[in-house]
Design a protein around this nucleic acid. Structure first.
Lengths: 237, 237
DNA sequence: CCAAAAGTGTTCAACATACACCCATGA
DNA sequence: TCATGGGTGTATGTTGAACACTTTTGG
C-alpha cells in the first residue's frame, strides 16, 4: 500500500452513519406509516422514523433488515434504498449521514408482532405528526417514490395479506394515489396482467355478496417485476 | 441534552464517507463515461469513477458539485443521487460508505475544460475497462437508471449541446437504449411534446441537406419534468 | 324484499406502430 | 447527376377511458 494513499485516508474526517426506515402499511382503508417515539431531549421526544446506527461490519441492507426486524420481528420484507440524507446540520447533536430505506409491510397479519420495546404506532399518511430532524422530507420523498413505483410495477401486493380481494387492492391503489378508480377498468387491467390466481374462497363479513380471494402468482411476479407494466390506473368519471 | 443520548452517539463507530460520480456524455455517436486513473497501489492504478471525500461542513449535493467542478470546471450540471454503496469490504483500505451520483454532461462543448490534474478519459459504455472497487456495479446501476429515466422523462437534452438536431437526439436515444428507432415516429412523438423550439439555423457539414437546429423550451421543460411523458420510443421495423 | 357491494361488456378516442416517398445539397 | 441524409403522412391495430346494469345475499 502506498503511504500517501494511506495518509490521505487518515486525513479524512469520519462521520456517523445511520439509517432510517419509512415503513408503509395498509389497513384496508388508509395508507399508514409506522412511527416510533424518539428524541434527544426529554421534553421534546417527538415521533420519528424507526432508525439505528450502521454497525462496523454490517452492510447497509443488512442494517436495514436488522432494524426492521428489531421493531416488527418480520423478515423477508420488501425493502429498498430510497435516498441518503447528509446535510451537515440535519442532526443537531453531531453530523450524521442517514441512509433512508423504504419498506412495505402488511399491517393486519403482523400487527401483533410489534416489539413492545418501542413506542410504535401506525399513523395515516394524511395526518402525520411533526417528525424528528429531516424525517418529514424523507417521508415526503418516500410517498412520491411509492406513487412512482406503484404506477410502474405491481408493487402494491407487498402491502396486502397473501389472500386479498380485488376491491381491497383497488382501495389500496386509491389510497396510494389519492383518487377514485373505476372498478371495471381497474379489474380488467389487473387481470390482464395474468399475475393473479383466483381462489375458491370468498371474503366473509365485509359485504353481503362476498368477494373472491386472489393470490399472486409469485413466479410471474418476480419475473415481470422489472418490466414496466405502466400500472397507473385510469380514474373514474 | 440528555447524557444517555450523547453517550449513545459517542459509542458509535464512525465511517469514512466518500462520493463517486458516474458521468455520462454523448459525442454524437456513442454513449460515453468519463473515467479517471486512480488506485491504491502503484502497480495497479486502474480506471475508476471520479470521486472524493465528503468534507465536514459540506452537504452531499455540495460535495458532488464540487467534485464535478474540480474535474470539468462545469457548473449547473444535471446531477442526481443514485445510490449509496456501503458493504464493509468494498474499499480494502478502510471501510468507506460511498454515495454515488449520476451526472449528465455535454461532451462537445466542454471537452476542453477537463482538468489537466486528472488523467481523465471518455470511454464508450460498450467497452469499459476494469474499474476500481465496486465501481462497475455503480456504472451498471447508473446505465439502468439512465434508461429508466430517459424512458419517462425528456432527460436526454442534458447530454446535448444547447442547439441540436432531431437526428442527433435520435442517435442519442438509440445509444441509450441500444436499439434502432423509426425516424418518422420518433420525430412525431418528440414534436408532440411541444418542448422543442425550431431555429432558423441548419447544421452544416454533417449531411448535405443539413438538419434544422432546435433548442429546448426551458420553461416547459422544467415545468413538465416531473410529469410522466412515457418517452420510451417505438422501434423501427 | 331491499340495501350494499360484487361482478361484468361495449363503445369511442387516443396513441403507437408500420411503412415509402420526395427534398435539398455537396461532391 | 447522384448519393446521402433530412423531412413528412397515412392506414391499422392496440390500449385506455367512459359508462350502466345484473347478481348475490345478509339483515
Amino acid at each position: 500500500m502506498r503511504l500517501d494513499i494511506l495518509k490521505q485516508y487518515q486525513a479524512q474526517t469520519k462521520c456517523l452513519v445511520a439509517l432510517d426506515s419509512i415503513i408503509f402499511g395498509f389497513d384496508g382503508e388508509e395508507l399508514k406509516l409506522l412511527l416510533v417515539k424518539r428524541g434527544i431531549e426529554d421534553e421534546d421526544r417527538t415521533w420519528s422514523l424507526m432508525g439505528g446506527w450502521v454497525q462496523p461490519d454490517e452492510s447497509l441492507e443488512g442494517a436495514s433488515s436488522r432494524i426492521l426486524f428489531e421493531l416488527t420481528s418480520l423478515t423477508d420484507i420488501y425493502l429498498e434504498q430510497l435516498h441518503t440524507f447528509g446535510s451537515p446540520q440535519r442532526d443537531p447533536v453531531e453530523r450524521t449521514v442517514s441512509v433512508a430505506y423504504f419498506a412495505l409491510i402488511n399491517v393486519e397479519d403482523y400487527a401483533h408482532k410489534l416489539s413492545k420495546s418501542y413506542e410504535a404506532q401506525w399513523f395515516s399518511v394524511q395526518e402525520l405528526p411533526k417528525l424528528l430532524f429531516d424525517h418529514s422530507s424523507m417521508v415526503e420523498m418516500a410517498i412520491e417514490h411509492l406513487r412512482y413505483k406503484a404506477s410502474q410495477h405491481p408493487i402494491g401486493f407487498e402491502l396486502l395479506p397473501e389472500k386479498f380481494t380485488i376491491p381491497q387492492l383497488q382501495k389500496l391503489y386509491e389510497a396510494i394515489f389519492g383518487t377514485e378508480l373505476d372498478k371495471r377498468n381497474f379489474s380488467r387491467k389487473l387481470l390482464s396482467t395474468n399475475l393473479l390466481i383466483k381462489l375458491d374462497e370468498k371474503q366473509k363479513g365485509y359485504s353481503k355478496k362476498g368477494a373472491f380471494f386472489y393470490k399472486i402468482d409469485e413466479e410471474k411476479y418476480k419475473k415481470q417485476f422489472n418490466t414496466f407494466l405502466n400500472f397507473l390506473p385510469g380514474s373514474t368519471s
